[in-house]
Amino acid sequence: MTDSAHMVLMVATVLFGLGLIGVLTRKNVVFMLISVEIMLNAAGLAFVAAGSKWQQPDGQVMFLFILAMAAAEVSVGLALVLQIYHQHKTMDVEDLKELRD
């Protein structure tokens, strides 16, 4: 059982790393939001794996909180994406430099 828990944690790490690579390399705002979703999903996977290893329900409770947080985050983020596209007609984060010094 510990072996499989280690494997699940490794899978969660790989998924989190892929999401981090996506956030760092992509320049489109929608792809960055998608990568953030992948990272949150990997964090939830790690929580559920830990809760399954010790047979406690706390991991699944934390996954529910991550789920609600991801839903709120993606709704606000997509509203921001729509507003950015209506104002600037672009999705490239390199062109959105109004807050830059």
């Binding site: 409770v61 529910l64 909180f65 609600a68 947080m69 839903a71 709120a72 985050e73 709704s75 606000v76 997509l78 509203a79 921001l80 729509l82 507003q83």
Partner: peptide, 20 residues
């Protein structure tokens, strides 16, 4: 934490409706 999550979802709804 459940009640705080409710607050968070409410803030998300209001924020998305205001920004969008």
């Amino acid at each position: 934490a459940v009640e705080l999550t409710g607050f968070l979802l409410m803030a998300g709804i209001v924020g998305a409706a205001h920004i969008g």
